[in-house]
Amino acid sequence: MTQSIENTNAWEGGVRPYNASYGKLMMWFFLITDALTFSGFLVAYGFSRFKFQDLWPVAEDVFTHFPFMHGHHPLLFVALMTFILIMSSVTMVLAVNYGHKMEKEKVILWLSLTIVGGAIFLGSQAWEWAHFIHGLDGVPATLVSNPYGHALFADYFFFITGFHGFHVFSGILILTVILINVIKGTYEKRGHYEMVEKVGLYWHFVDLVWVFVFTFFYLV
């Protein structure tokens, strides 16, 4: 699969840096830039929160609803969303793992379940947004003002969870394209399922970002 340095001059190409394929390496470089982008957003959130700490709402008093249940349930719904995303990460690794073993049927199964998990997460986020926008006591949350606290709180909420949600949405699209290719047998012919692995990297990254959003938006 890989050539050793001895019989090829490394400066003349044809050698894989770090023993990783071009596509995988580029996916990693993209993810690093994306990680820095999200860090920029979260750190901006932190700045505004420190600056307006007297007016900043406590997340637990804002996100207290759970579908089909009445009363005060802080953290419960986001915990469920986190669980769904972790679960879809697990199904993704399983798909990658069966890809290594060239078991097409199982790759199809676990990849499909990953897409379902992502879709459920997106639906949950839509529900969360609807409740957030609905506001308190008839006062809705908008980009200009919200009933919870400082106006920037809602802005960051829409922007950061929205940007993450868009990543999930793109992930679902990419996973669907890859799934169609798997079903058509493209990777079977190619002899390896590395594309599944690459989209897997992206999907885990989306999960990784959510872990940080969960902590910095809901817990801390």
């Binding site: 990680a35 820095l36 860090s39 750190v43 901006a44 932190g46 700045f47 929160r49 420190f50 600056k51």
Partner: peptide
Amino acid sequence: IPYLFFIILTEGGYAY
């Protein structure tokens, strides 16, 4: 990333 957090959050506290 930790450096960015350190420097911007310090600044946020100062702005407050």
